[in-house]
């Protein structure tokens, strides 16, 4: 039995007067890639934002490393070891690739230098465009930069929101390979609509619909369950 790194228990989130999350349950186990699935507007992005504290939960609890982080400010949560790769990548457009990564690097220790070296080997494009403005990178390069930036920030858990969005198949392939490689060193919570990608690299899945968790299990169960795929994901 592997340990739960992250646990969401009956999480509710309001944005303004809207009740967006209405009972999300979720666990991420150490060393796994957990995939959050659900149709457009189901609440996947909001779930990630609630974990990182940008839209804090108004009910239920979020536990990370056995600590209650439900009410903590975003920077505290990030410093506990959660890296966030938002849906729009959140690149600082006028900062260079180097500066984008530097914002994230807390200290220039041996360990962080090693991590930087590691991601730059994983994404050689970033090294190539080291001095280029983040806003001028291609979509795929922005995705890689966002992932690298979250990774060097001492992350034990990476939240990655739809990394395949808007990318060409060959670039998606690259991003997938990178996630599989990063998985060796960190736990990953992935939001992904591309079921091919999700099923290939995910170990477990959580299906949310209308702001609620409706199913959880091993990825294999979902792959074999055509009815569930059809009902919630509109495939098969």
């Amino acid at each position: 039995m592997m340990e739960n790194l992250l646990k969401l228990d009956n999480v509710n989130t309001h944005i303004g007067q809207y009740h967006i999350l209405q009972g999300v349950h979720f666990e991420a186990k150490v060393g796994e890639v957990s995939v959050l699935l659900g149709r457009n507007g189901a609440g996947k992005t909001t779930t990630l934002k609630t974990i990182i504290g940008l839209t804090p939960a108004t009910g239920g609890s979020v536990t990370f490393l056995n600590q209650d982080i439900t009410k903590k400010p975003t920077y505290d949560i990030a410093n506990l070891g959660i890296g966030y790769v938002p849906e729009d990548q959140g690149i600082f457009a006028q900062l260079s690739v180097e500066e984008n990564i530097k914002v994230a690097m807390k200290k220039e220790s041996e360990e962080s230098k090693e991590k930087l070296e590691y991601v730059l080997n994983l994404f050689p494009d970033l090294k190539k465009f080291w001095k280029k403005a983040g806003g001028n990178l291609s979509g795929g390069q922005k995705q890689m930069l966002a992932m690298a930036r979250a990774f060097v920030n001492d992350s034990k858990l990476l939240l990655i929101d739809e990394p395949s969005k808007g990318l060409a198949p060959i670039v998606i392939e690259k991003v997938m390979e990178a996630i599989v490689e990063m998985k060796k060193r960190t736990t990953i919570l992935l939001v992904e609509q591309n079921f091919f990608m999700a099923s290939k690299i995910g170990d477990s899945f959580t299906l949310i619909d209308d702001g609620k968790t409706v199913h959880q299990g091993a990825m294999k169960e979902l792959i074999d369950n055509d009815e569930m795929k059809h009902k919630y994901l509109g495939i098969g």
């Binding site: 410093n79 966030y84 959140g90």
Partner: peptide
Amino acid sequence: TKVGLIVRAGVMNKDMVQALGINI
């Protein structure tokens, strides 16, 4: 400087700066 870098990044995207562990 680092603090200047953070200020410039913050002008562009405050949420992201916080998500990188900085108390804005």
